[in-house]
Structures are given as C-alpha cells and as structure tokens.
Measured scan of single mutants.
Amino acid sequence: NLRWTSEAKTKLKNIPFFARSQAKARIEQLARQAEQDIVTPELVEQARLEFG
C-alpha cells in the first residue's frame, strides 16, 4: 500500500474534484512504476502535467 506525504495530499486537493479520483489512480500508478512506496509532490505534479 502506498503512503502519501502531507505535501502530496495537499497538491491532490488542488486538483478539481471531478478529476481527482482519476488523477489519484494515475499518481499511484506512476509511483508503482517508479517502484516507490511513498507518493511525493513531484509525482502529483507529474500527473497534473499529463492531465493538462
């Protein structure tokens, strides 16, 4: 299971509600691909840039 830093959680809250669950799934996918067990603000930002 993935842990989220408080900064990453804050960044996730800045994503519009309607896109948040999809973004969260993508962020967690990116973390797993990078073999990380902690979601960082950088991963959230990477996903945000993908979504535009």
Rank of each mutant, 00 (worst) to 15 (best):
E28P: 01
I38Q: 06
A47T: 05
R26F: 13
R32E: 04
E35Q: 14
L2F: 06
A31R: 01
P41W: 11
V44N: 01
V44L: 03
R32W: 05
E28L: 05
T5F: 02
A19E: 10
L43Q: 03
A8D: 00
T10F: 11
N1S: 13
E42P: 03
Q46C: 06
P16M: 03
E42Q: 09
E7D: 08
L43V: 04
F18I: 08
E45K: 05
T40V: 03
L30V: 04
V44A: 02
L12E: 01
D37W: 14
Q36F: 10
T40D: 02
A8E: 00
F17W: 14
A8K: 01
I27E: 00
F51G: 05
N14D: 15
T5A: 05
I38T: 10
R48W: 15
P16N: 05
N1H: 13
A25E: 10
L49V: 09
R48L: 15
R48F: 15
V44K: 00
E45N: 06
V39D: 01
Q29D: 08
I38C: 07
L12D: 00
L43M: 13
V39T: 00
K13E: 12
R48G: 08
N14Y: 10
F18E: 09
Q33S: 09
R20G: 02
Q46N: 04
D37H: 12
S21T: 10
Q36L: 14
E35L: 13
R20N: 02
R26I: 10
L30R: 04
T10K: 15
I15L: 08
A8W: 01
I15H: 02
S6W: 11
L2N: 01
A23G: 02
R20M: 05
R20V: 03
A25P: 02
I38L: 09
A23Q: 05
V44M: 06
I15D: 02
K13P: 01
E50T: 09
R3K: 12
N14V: 06
A31T: 06
N1P: 15
R3Y: 12
V39G: 00
T40L: 04
F18M: 09
D37T: 14
T5W: 01
K11P: 00
A19K: 12
L12Y: 07
K13G: 11
I15R: 01
Q29M: 11
F18R: 09
Q29H: 08
Q29Y: 11
R32H: 07
A19F: 15
S6Q: 14
R26K: 07
N1Y: 12
W4C: 01
Q33W: 10
A47W: 15
E7A: 12
A19W: 15
E50C: 09
I38D: 04
I15E: 02
A8P: 00
T40Y: 06
S6F: 11
Q22G: 08
R26E: 04
E28Q: 04
R3I: 13
S6T: 11
A25R: 12
E35M: 15
D37Q: 12
Q33Y: 09
A25D: 07
E45G: 03
T40W: 04
A8Y: 01
A8Q: 01
A47L: 08
K24Y: 07
I15V: 06
K9P: 00
K13L: 14
